[in-house]
Design a protein around this nucleic acid. Sequence first.
DNA 1: GGAGTTTACGAATGTCGTAACTATC
DNA 2: GATAGTTACGACATTCGTAAACTCC
Lengths: 88, 88
Amino acid sequence: MNIDSLQCFILVAENLSFARAAEAMYKSQPAVTKQINSLEAELGTALFIRSTRHVELTPAGMSFYKDAKDIVLNSQMAIDRAKRQSIG
Amino acid sequence: MNIDSLQCFILVAENLSFARAAEAMYKSQPAVTKQINSLEAELGTALFIRSTRHVELTPAGMSFYKDAKDIVLNSQMAIDRAKRQSIG
DNA sequence: GGAGTTTACGAATGTCGTAACTATC
DNA sequence: GATAGTTACGACATTCGTAAACTCC
């Protein structure tokens, strides 16, 4: 699992759109689809219920969303702290 | 950044040995070296002071160690919770 | 000289983007 | 029929392991 995939998942969850998430990440739509698929495969559970015209979070997706936000935020703070330690 | 690299870093930090960390991850020593190098490059700071006979955490490494532990733990719990949600 | 870390290099794996397909409205 | 998500596929990048080199004790 990598942080980029989590960021990708967060953007899809917040936009409820693969297209807009792709735009926000400066990636193509297929790349977003594959990252979400990989994430779901790794978790062994679906995160979204999607048809071509509707994207919706599953209960597992809602649970994972909050955790993903925390993890991404924590990792960004960890990087900042490490950098700050190396300077100061 | 991916969780595997963090796990790798944690194992090196706890064993103060690239060789033992590699063993614990069922990977080769060079793979561990490269993951740590990548991580350091990404952070823009050294995490270990190492000679061939001694491995030691830098201040940035110590700071990052605590954060890395949290992130890895949180991600494991996030996976568990998502799986549980999908079942129950 | 031996234990342990780092390069070198070829192979395998993964990820991306373009293009084509499918499905919903 | 237009919009949005998914496959197919070829290309690029990353990561791995074996083998060789380097370094400190």
